[in-house]
Computed example of a mutant assay.
Amino acid sequence: MTKVLVLGGGTAGLVAARYLKAEADRLKLDIDVTMITASERHYMPPLFMEVALGSAEGHETWAPIKNAEKVYGFKVELDKVTEIDLDNRKVKTESGKVYDYDYLVLGLGVKYVWDKYKGLAEYGYHNYTLEGALKLRKALSEFKGGKIVIYVPEVPHRCGIYPFEMSLNLRSYFEHRGIEDVEIKVVHPGEAPAKALNKTVSKFFEREMGKARAEFVHHDGHVEITPNKVVTKNAEVDYDLLIKVPPIAIPDIMSFMADDKDPRWAKVKGPDFRYPGYDEVYVVSEASMPPLGLLTAGVPLHNAAIVSATSILHQIHGGFPVAEYAPTMCLGHGYNTGFAGNCEYKWNGSKYERHCYLLFKSPLVRLMKDSFYRGWLDSLRL
């Protein structure tokens, strides 16, 4: 029997485990697929923004990951990983268990580094966790007018379009409440909204942010945040309500795998996301996306998990086709419309080159996006 161990019950872990199990069953391969995750909940983080804006409730953002055993057939162990021993192919957990493996998939996500910048941990709200979304929801419901700043200290961060999408949705939110006296600014280190995607996508946000009277403010580096001001190297911006985006980095349990060039990220080899020196180990998280030129969001993780799973199957079942990294579609909405963008990728020998472009605009995008997220979670509800 071949043992495949998947660490993490988020998007990457779930996709990798269910793909491996489904193909193993179809091909009648003797493969044991086991997932270890510290949380009993499989979250859909994009819905946290909906919670903050009052269009979703907390219980709608997650489903029990243990249900994956019945739905997809692989084992789920609710436990916290405390040690990863690559040389001996063993993983230890908080409960004292030791798991060995033939192949290891690391889908442990990233950690939020709130204390990286002065004042970032102390001031402001966010919706990057369910708890944070509920606090932001209360703050927004009590806001009667004034200056709102959405602050991004560094890039890349989780979901690159979030600050701009949020600015559009905030305008709609306050208009529906009949509050006109709201100034919205996105303070961001980029040169233009969503420029990392493409000029056409960036232009979409520029136009829509103009309609929504949401201002983009470029900053050249963080200085500090005070109770009523964001101070950067080139600008000081007052606020009455601050919405902040967290810096991200490799999880502590994986710190020994940090990249020498940028310790925020994991060492990783393309095109199939293996860890250098250990061909049986695959690193599939936001922490392994930037070194390969990929975006830090759920759809890129989905693709990376499939590439990794097919690479494992190829080694076990010689000849199984290793998937190419597929095009990724990005959906964003706000202020009465939405967009669908697409990114195509090509492996150049050291990283993935991407070509992104706008597909279409439509107010139906919100329905498309919401239906996908909720349908994903519904598949885990029994």
Rank of each mutant, 00 (worst) to 15 (best):
G319Q: 05
L20Y: 06
V237G: 04
E142K: 05
V71G: 00
L292C: 13
H333Y: 15
G190D: 10
D85E: 09
H333E: 15
I253F: 07
E180D: 15
L331G: 07
V201M: 15
V152Q: 03
K118V: 11
H222F: 05
T93Y: 06
M166A: 05
A17H: 00
K135C: 06
M44A: 15
V322C: 07
P263G: 02
E208K: 15
E50Q: 06
A304I: 13
N303T: 03
A212N: 06
E50F: 07
G277T: 13
G277K: 13
M49P: 04
A16S: 13
K147P: 11
P327R: 03
V182H: 12
R158E: 02
S379I: 02
W347N: 07
V322D: 08
R354H: 14
P321A: 07
H317T: 05
I179E: 15
F360Q: 09
S255N: 10
G375Q: 10
P45N: 06
G8N: 00
D30P: 01
E286G: 03
M329K: 08
T337Y: 02
R374Q: 06
L106H: 00
D30S: 03
Y352R: 00
F205G: 02
M49A: 13
E191L: 14
S202D: 04
P227I: 14
D260T: 12
H302I: 01
C330E: 12
L108P: 04
E286T: 02
G73M: 00
H219T: 05
Y173C: 11
M254D: 14
D279Q: 05
V322W: 08
Y335D: 10
F360E: 15
E165P: 14
E122T: 13
G10R: 00
S371R: 13
I253V: 15
V223P: 03
P156G: 03
P227L: 09
N88L: 03
Y352E: 04
H176P: 03
D79Y: 11
V217C: 12
V217E: 10
L241Q: 08
A121P: 02
D100V: 01
G375N: 04
I148T: 04
Y117H: 15
P247W: 06
K111R: 09
D87C: 01
